[in-house]
Design a binder for these strands. Sequence first.
DNA 1: CGCACTGACTGGCATGATGCAAGTGACTGA
DNA 2: TCAGTCACTTGCATCATGCCAGTCAGTGCG
Lengths: 163, 163
Amino acid sequence: MRRKSFADMSCPIARTLDIVGEWWTLLIVRDALVGARRFDDFRKSGIADNILSARLELLVREGILERRAYQDRPPRHEYLLTDKGHDLLPVIVSLGMWGLKWTDGPVRTPRFLHIRCDTEVSTAFHCQTCGEAVQPREIRVERPTAPSAAVNRVGSGQAVAAP
Amino acid sequence: MRRKSFADMSCPIARTLDIVGEWWTLLIVRDALVGARRFDDFRKSGIADNILSARLELLVREGILERRAYQDRPPRHEYLLTDKGHDLLPVIVSLGMWGLKWTDGPVRTPRFLHIRCDTEVSTAFHCQTCGEAVQPREIRVERPTAPSAAVNRVGSGQAVAAP
DNA sequence: CGCACTGACTGGCATGATGCAAGTGACTGA
DNA sequence: TCAGTCACTTGCATCATGCCAGTCAGTGCG
C-alpha cells in the first residue's frame, strides 16, 4: 500500500518526514555525516542492497546527497552530503540525545566536535530574551495558527492535529 | 517483509529510530505536543484508523504516551505525553527547522515558547569551551570509536557505517 | 420510540515496502 | 584462467499501509 504523502501538508515537520521518514533513510544520513561515501560503506549498517540503492537514489534526487564519480573504469560513484544534507545534523543529534537518555544498550554514537576548539558540542534550546539555555520542560508548545479557529472541545483543550 | 530491527544496534540514534521511525509516529508525537489527546484529535492528521490505533498502542507500550480514562460509560481514553515523550521535543523542532529551510509550502508549524517570558525559543548547537552558539557547518562529526580499527580505504577516508 | 449521528476503535482486503539472496558486469590480482 | 571485489539489479515472499466498512455504546432529535 503506497504510503500517504506528507509532502503537501502545511507543516514543515511533516514535509521533512515525507523526505527522510522512511526506514533506513536517516541512518544513511548518519553514516554520511560520519564519513561513509561508497555503496559498500553504507552497506555496513546492515541495510539490504536494493533498499540502499533506492535510498541513495532518493537522497540524491532530494538534494541531500550528491553523487560523484571516483573512477571511470568501471564507472563508480560516491555519495557526499550537500549543505542541505548537512543541515540534517541537528535532527541526527537530537535523535541521538533522546536515545542516549531513554534507551538501553551500548553507547556507540558519533561525536560532534566544534572544529575550532575540538570540544564536543551539545544542542539545546535557547531563549534570546533571557539569554540562556532552556530545558524542554520549560517550553510551551503552541499549535499552528489556523484560518478557521479550532473548535473548542469542552474540557479537553483545543486540540487539533495538523495536516 | 518485517523490517529489520534497529533495537539491538549499538548506536542510540538507531535505537531511537527503531521506536519512533515508523511512518506517522513522529507526527502523532507532534500532535500530542500541540495538545491532541483523543483518538479523534489525532485522526485529523489524515492517518488511517487502524494505523493510528496501532501507533497509539506502540507509543503507550514504549512509555512515550500514557493512556488515561476520561469517561467510563462507555470507557474512553485519552493519550498524554510522558516525560519520555516530551523529551522528543528537540527531535520535532529540528525536523521543523530543516523543513522550514529546505522545503516549500505554507508555513504552519507549532511555535515553541519559553514559558517564563513567552519568547519563541530556537534550538542550536552550543560550545561550552567557547561559550557560544555553533553552526552545523562548524561541527566535525567523528565516527564512533570501534574496538577493531576500521580498515583504511585508500583515498576515501575511513568510512564505516555503524550497525 | 426509532433513527441518525458521534466517538473509539476493529477487521478484511489489496497494494506497496521491505528483506533475502542470487545474479550481472567490469575490473584486479595471483 | 579463476576467484574475489564492487556496485548495483532482480525475483520473490512477507509484512506495513491505507481504505473503508463494521461494531458498540451513547446522545439527541423528531
